[in-house]
Amino acid sequence: MHPAFSVVFFTTATGAGYGLLALLGVLGGAQIIPPDFWLGFIGMGLALGLIAAGLLSSTGHLGRPERAWRAFSQWRSSWLSREGVASVATFVPAGLFCIGWVFFDRTGGWVAIAGLLAAIGAIVTVCTTGMIYASLKPIAQWHSRYTLPAYLIFSAMTGSVLLNALLQGFALGSRMLLAASMLLTLLGWGWKLATWRYNDALEIATNANTATGLVGGTVRSLEWPHTEENYLLKEMGFRIARKHSARLRQITQVLAFALPVLLLAATLALPWPFAAVLSVLAAIAQLSGMLVERWLFFAEAKHTVSLYYGR
């Protein structure tokens, strides 16, 4: 599958944004995080900014973005429509929570309820994003039990590492949150390794024989219907060299998982300004690594239409 930057950025940014929003909603509402003006302003600004930037970016790959409002109508059958509805609906409690925290300096009472609803909305939205990919049968690497949990784990992971960077910046860091973000990063690493292992050993029932209905023997593409790449090949026939794939997997592991865990571990032992700097670096490394991970998620996915072209 062609890794369009708008979609790679969209899923990575909204994943982190919804993760951060859910954690702020729950921990803020439960008074674990103090209702400080600047903390709320920057934290909610970052969460909602990442979500809004991601959603705007996703409209960038539409052929007719001016009709995007129509995408809210088919929630009964379409995961993409459900994602649209859930993402917009989540802005309501998230906005109320933000107003309560930033303008009224309180995170209890109705603001806590709004925070909880925003967290639920965030989780639902991330689920719908994951299901868009998990429900596509022609792409075996996505149509697996690994896809939906991956979106949820990576959202929680990037959200917690961002929240840790934010709290460390305000000298409010806690060992609990540090430990949680390290554990989530290790969980994400393990899940990614398991996914790659599963995909590499995947035995796909669909092949050139079933695609053409020609039984037995070998089916070799002799001649394409066209001389140049068409939409199908540009969009779904994207191929990545095995050696590049191996190198990019290494880069993903270093940036998204190994480096953040090391930086967060060092943060445990360091005082305020250093701990804050390392926490922010961990978040930057992880988000960059997740962009590579998401790029690979697309680049390594093989659509059945490529069988017709002998790819």
């Binding site: 790959h61 539409l62 052929g63 007719r64 995007a68 995408a71 596509l136 022609p138 792409i139 199908l232």
Partner: peptide, 11 residues
């Protein structure tokens, strides 16, 4: 709207 998801869903 030209989201192209249908072309992904068609094997």
């Amino acid at each position: 709207i030209g989201c192209k998801l249908c072309s992904w869903a068609c094997p």
